[in-house]
Amino acid sequence: MAPRVGVVLFPGSNCELDVLEAVRLLGGEGEILWHGDDALGGVDAVVVPGGFAHGDYLRPGAIARFSPVMGAVTKFAADGGPVVGICNGFQVLTEAGLLPGALQKNRGLKFVCGPAQLRVESDQSVLTSGVKSGTLLEVPINHFEGNYTCSPETLAQLRDEDRIVLRYVRNPNGSMDDIAGITNGGRNVVGLMPHPERATSELLGSTDGLLLLQSLLQAASGRVAA
């Protein structure tokens, strides 16, 4: 049975269809999860996509975190379910406390948009399990608030526990320790600023995003079998 991936739709999300398309390209089933529903309909993985959930009012992710669906996502994550937050989705996951730290405005107030070289730093996460550590990937970035920051204690913990899963080769936004993506202690929740769903075809300039999303589908398949 094909794994089912739920993609959360908030008012203001704008990358949900790209994620669905990528999931289907890889042989998975994708479906939209409306933010106002408090159940996930039995999906095997959840993606919180990019965009401007609730207009990014107050702070990116600040209001999205109170959407009814987030209670179900939090429970799913606590139960070991694979959850990936992309760009605005990463901001939502930090605000919801599923991942530590925060995403600040980019260094120099610079909106960044273009391909970014990433280095996979750990293959121990639901998004990177199929990619060897040290692999270089090209995946687009597109954000104003992607400058990852956290306390020195949190940074030390992320490093010690091998939870920085992706780093920028050339830091585009001032992000602490060149962080592009991190995982939680259970390694089943990942947040990243780059958009793997936009690197899924040679026509788009790169297919490297498929390697990441394939790992997520693999993790989702594990839930189907279980």
């Binding site: 107050l58 702070r59 600040a62 930090t94 605000e95 730290g101 925060a102 600040q104 920051t149 956290c150 306390s151």
Partner: peptide, 8 residues
């Protein structure tokens, strides 16, 4: 709980 993000 809402108006500030205590991290920053």
């Amino acid at each position: 709980r809402f108006l500030t993000n205590p991290v920053i």
